[in-house]
């Protein structure tokens, strides 16, 4: 059995898959946690508006609110348009 395992080990191990998945989801959730409560709804509303004109999937839009100094907050909006929709 262990000999068989040895030859099979070319497959990517599950621990590194777990780590990658965690890094992505944790970063995502941290960003959300630090933002105001209305941010997810704002993100959905903006997505709806854009979808009136261009059909883009939900994960192609990112809204973030960044605090710069005491006075200024910057709302950053990133929308990736699919190649054929430009």
């Amino acid at each position: 059995m262990s000999l068989l395992d040895y030859f099979r080990s070319t497959k990517k191990n599950t621990a590194s898959t777990a780590k990658e998945r965690l890094q992505i989801i944790v970063a995502h959730e941290r960003k959300r946690r630090n933002g105001p409560d209305y941010l997810p709804q704002l993100e959905r509303d903006i997505l709806e508006v854009i979808r009136k004109y261009v059909d883009i999937p939900a994960d192609q839009i990112a809204v973030s609110l960044e605090q710069r100094g005491d006075q200024i907050s910057v709302l950053e909006l990133n929308v990736t348009f699919p190649d054929d929709k430009r």
Binding site: T14, A15, A18, K19
Partner: peptide
Amino acid sequence: EKGEMLSVED
């Protein structure tokens, strides 16, 4: 060690 579990470092 077998790559089946997240390590301390991970």
